[in-house]
């Protein structure tokens, strides 16, 4: 800054700077309070028992706090949802950037925006009243609720993320690469699958990881369709409870200030660490994708 800037302008600049710091301060604040509330659990409960036991009976006379079942539940549901969403998402992204004419691409884009805007409780309703009965009819499941239904709903919910990032990364691939491949006598599909997608790889992976983050952090929709039993999921049709579900379910009846309440914040820490790790991955891949498209 030059010295002749009027003092009130410098004051306003300072204000703007402070506002710019709100996000990072919030992140630090959230991290601090979640850890501050959750870490004291380990005074009473063994760290490894917390992570590696699947016995969750926080209100028993001899309470036990093991969240392994929920960690597995979260990972299980997220994995299946990605297995569903990734092929469909990438294919739709390919369609939008490579095959669709502007009219269709705009129609699909509006559709994707709507899909992204639908609140998670509505996905939950849809899952419970539409998907679950189908699962119930097609399989041996009694309720139709559980890992599979939750995964289908989550798969639909993360589709927009994957589609958007795929489309954006494919569009960022230089035209020269496409022409280079076509000029060698490759079909359009060979060009897409062997040149464009590998070139857009980092961006697409970043989108998938972003999808993982959304999937693992989603609460309401899974809460309504996953069955919510605090047990180790045994298969696709098994009821399950994820980390997020554990927090939202138990906070309702945990006594304020009890070890039970603390354990829910500790569950939050585990979820938070998952998310931070995922964020770092996204950041890494985004950076890599940026480097790629901007050459070297």
């Amino acid at each position: 800054m030059k010295n002749d800037t009027p003092s009130h302008e410098r004051f306003i600049e300072l204000m703007l700077f402070l506002f710019a710091c709100v996000s990072i301060i919030s992140v630090i604040g959230i991290t601090f309070f979640i850890f501050e509330e959750g870490l004291p659990l380990f005074v009473h409960v063994n760290f490894f028992e917390f992570l590696l036991s699947s016995d969750w009976s926080p209100t028993a006379d001899n309470p036990s706090f093991g969240i392994l079942a929920f960690i597995i539940g979260s990972i299980f549901v997220t994995t299946i949802s990605l297995i569903i969403a990734v092929p469909i998402g990438i294919a739709t992204g390919v369609f939008m950037s490579e095959y669709a004419n502007p009219k269709w691409s705009s129609i699909v884009r509006k559709g994707i925006e709507l899909l992204a805007g639908i609140p998670s409780v509505i996905y939950g309703l849809f899952g419970f009243f539409f998907i679950a009965p189908i699962i119930r009819t097609l399989t041996s499941s009694d309720t139709g609720l559980g890992v599979l239904t939750a995964s289908i709903i989550l798969g639909i919910m993360v589709l927009p993320t994957i589609i958007n990032t795929t489309e954006v990364s494919l569009r960022a691939v230089p035209r020269e690469l496409k022409e280079g491949s076509l000029a060698l006598g490759a079909t359009y599909w060979q060009t897409i699958i062997r040149t464009l997608i590998p070139a857009a790889r980092s961006g697409i992976i970043a989108g998938i990881v972003l999808g993982i983050g959304r999937s693992i952090g989603e609460t309401m929709a899974v809460l309504m369709v996953a069955g919510n039993s605090p047990i180790m999921p045994k298969g696709l049709l098994s009821n399950t409870r994820t980390l997020t579900m554990n927090i939202v379910t138990d906070l309702k009846y945990a006594e304020v200030g009890s070890l039970h309440e603390t354990s829910l914040f500790t569950t939050g820490i585990v979820l938070f660490i998952f998310i931070l790790f995922i964020n770092l991955l996204v950041h890494y891949f985004m950076k890599k994708s940026l480097e790629r498209t901007q050459g070297k």
């Binding site: 020269e176 491949s181 076509l182």
Partner: peptide, 27 residues
């Protein structure tokens, strides 16, 4: 496709694919 196999093209800007040297030629 057949035509382009017989009539190759080199572009203004070098446009190697983002893969190894070998894979580029073997593409």
């Amino acid at each position: 496709i057949e035509l382009r196999k017989q009539i190759g093209m080199v572009f203004q800007k070098p446009n190697p694919f983002p893969m190894t040297v070998f894979e580029n030629v073997a593409y």
